[in-house]
Every structure is written in structure tokens, then in C-alpha cells.
């Protein structure tokens, strides 16, 4: 089973990298960008075939390592 985990900064957490990227885009003439938040995407192949079990295991992986829930949220998409 394939899964995609998306980790993003929580609302309100300062993202200096996103700001720098927005600034660079503006420098290239791409105006009208009002905000950018940088995140991470993990494409994961699982041996598990049961969807509920896979989701539970991915949640455990997010909590254990993939996200730092002090400042980050995560989303799990199976497909």
C-alpha cells in the first residue's frame, strides 16, 4: 500500500524559510504571492494491505518521528 504523509508547520509558527522563498519569488517577478509555508512530504510504501491498520501505523510513525507535534501538524493520505 502506498501512503503520503504531509507535515506542515502549525498556524502561528514562524516559518523563516517560507518567507525567504516568497521573497525570492518576488525577486523573480512573481508578484501577488501573499504567503508561503514550507512543509515536508513523505511517500511511503507499506507491506500492510489493511487500510485501518496502515493508518494506525502511520499515525504512530508520525508521532514517533516524522513530525514534531510541538510545532508541526501531519496529514495521512492512503492511495
Amino acid at each position: 500500500m502506498k501512503a503520503r504523509v504531509t507535515v506542515t508547520l502549525k498556524n502561528g509558527v514562524l516559518d523563516p524559510q517560507g518567507k525567504a522563498i516568497a521573497g525570492a519569488l518576488a525577486g523573480l517577478g512573481h508578484d501577488g504571492v501573499t504567503d508561503i509555508r514550507q512543509g515536508k512530504v513523505f511517500d511511503i510504501d507499506l507491506a500492510e494491505t489493511d487500510e485501518a491498520t496502515a493508518r494506525a501505523r502511520l499515525e504512530a510513525m508520525c508521532e514517533a518521528l516524522l513530525a514534531n507535534t510541538v510545532v508541526e501538524d501531519y496529514r495521512i493520505d492512503l492511495g
Binding site: V13, L14, P16, Q17, A20, N68, V70, V71
Partner: peptide, 10 residues
Amino acid sequence: PGILMRNADL
């Protein structure tokens, strides 16, 4: 507790 993030000025 907490986390160390990228320096504010990068």
C-alpha cells in the same frame, strides 16, 4: 520541552 527551529534571520 520545546524545539530549536531555524534562526529567525536564516
